[in-house]
Write a protein that binds this DNA or RNA. Structure first.
Lengths: 124, 124
DNA sequence: CCCTGTCGTTTACCTTGGTAAATCTTTCCA
DNA sequence: TGGAAAGATTTACCAAGGTAAACGACAGGG
């Protein structure tokens, strides 16, 4: 299976799991509520859906469940990025990079790092 | 209204409209079918949905409709990119650029263009 | 011992995107 | 002139994502 897609809120849940390695539903709800209101039952429903698609799992810790991610963040990042690339930039990573450089503000310190990543012009 | 989101296929339809300035439903169906099979009625349904959300419109040309986009491609590109940025890269354009440079193949000729866009290191 | 709060589970909607057949309508040619 | 072809419109599903109340089970305090 080719990395299932996760929705917006589902992703936020996954991010909590990646951050903390493991967390109870309650903890996740608390974490998400720092940004936007969401009912605990909603979080539980989403956790189920995440487990159903195999990207998260849980083990019982007494009466409560401890959830953890079963897929690497890298995979999800890759899929999300590839999606944008395919849909909007005709598959061209360079096109997206160019777009970002032209249209989004980037700090000089960050540009520095980017220059480093590209490396010097190597003449062929 | 803050630029409505358009789905995968809806976006492909919009891309045809941006390309050709205007097109009939038939022409759009034909264009999409070059890549993947899709029923004409599906295209028509989607065109309606696009009109409903105000990103496309039509004028009658005899018995048939001529559709055209009513929103700039730039807007949709921006929204889609911002979405990925917010959801996955914590809003950091530099983070996404770095990710792309590290994980996606980019041609040397394209790198050249990217270097140009960044500009030379200006020492502080 | 029982009541209440906390767990997880079940059930129920709503929206959006996608897919497409069925149907109404008009045109035009055989 | 009558019916097929081609438009548009209506109607119908299905899946996914999100939202959340309702419900059943249980542990722990008073």
């Amino acid at each position: 299976m080719s990395t299932p897609g996760v929705g917006r809120v589902q992703l936020r849940i996954m991010q909590v799991l990646w951050d903390r390695k493991q967390a109870t539903a309650r903890e996740i709800t608390a974490a998400l509520n720092e940004d936007e209101p969401i009912a605990h039952s909603t979080v539980q429903t989403l956790l189920r859906k995440l487990e159903a698609k195999g990207v998260a799992a849980h083990k019982a810790e007494g009466r409560t469940f401890l959830f953890h991610a079963t897929i690497k963040e890298q995979k999800v990042v890759r899929k999300a990025t590839r999606d944008l690339l395919e849909r909007v930039f005709d598959g061209s990573a360079a096109g997206l990079v160019a777009y970002l450089l032209k249209n989004e503000r980037i700090e000089e310190s960050e540009l520095e790092e980017i220059r480093r990543l590209i490396g010097p012009k190597n003449k062929k």
